[in-house]
Amino acid sequence: MAAISRDEVAHLARLARIEMTDAELDHLASEMDLILESVSRVQGVAGADIPPTSHAIAMQNVMRPDAVVPSLTPEESLSGAPAREEDRFKVPQILGEE
């Protein structure tokens, strides 16, 4: 049985905000199946007593002094904006009309 269905891949693509064609979904679903089969080897390797590692070199609560330093100007910040209006990023509508 397939580990992941085409519908599941379509759902993941929606969550990841990537539009996909039917052909892309078909292709990816079969690839994902192979990849998941190969990575599922990690399951059950470590016992319940083994803690997870998120960072190899552990550090906690790293702070830097709260000093005022020069930052980007509005012009610099907006230099890569796909669209702008005055000193702001211009974006498509976020809320529905209603």
């Binding site: 990690v42 470590a46 083994i50 803690p51 997870p52 590692t53 998120s54 190899a56």
Partner: peptide
């Protein structure tokens, strides 16, 4: 990372990282 699969995949991988 999705709920329901997190422990089986990402969580297991992090434990392997410890090993």
């Amino acid at each position: 990372l999705s709920s329901g699969y997190y422990d089986a995949y990402y969580g297991s991988a992090q434990k392997v990282r410890t090993l």
